[in-house]
Amino acid sequence: MRAYLTTIIESGTESYDLEIVEAASGFEALKTLPHHKFDAILTDINMPDINGLELVSFLKNHPVYRSIPIMVISTESTEEDRRRAAALGAEEYLVKPFQAGDLVEKLRRLLRVA
């Protein structure tokens, strides 16, 4: 089902030729980091292993990864956590459930592409 998110992004950003790497947990996310040069990271807050805030905190304190823009995707019930993510340095957030168009729009902004 993760692939569904990928599908939305792919269909909305076809012309940019994005490569999307999926990770099912916080650990998986950490493990993929050294293998790619990411232009943007999208993360949930409620995840197994390490949560989204911990991931954001790590990335934003890392000498190499701190410059990668981050979008936190989460639900209304985690409003407070979203505020915390912003305090940790996450650039963008999106509330679930969302429209495909919103996601693509925010992603474009994040990537600074017109």
Partner: peptide
């Protein structure tokens, strides 16, 4: 501070 800031509301 860093640990404090990275806690979710639940944590």
């Amino acid at each position: 501070e860093q640990t404090k800031k990275s806690l979710t509301e639940y944590e």
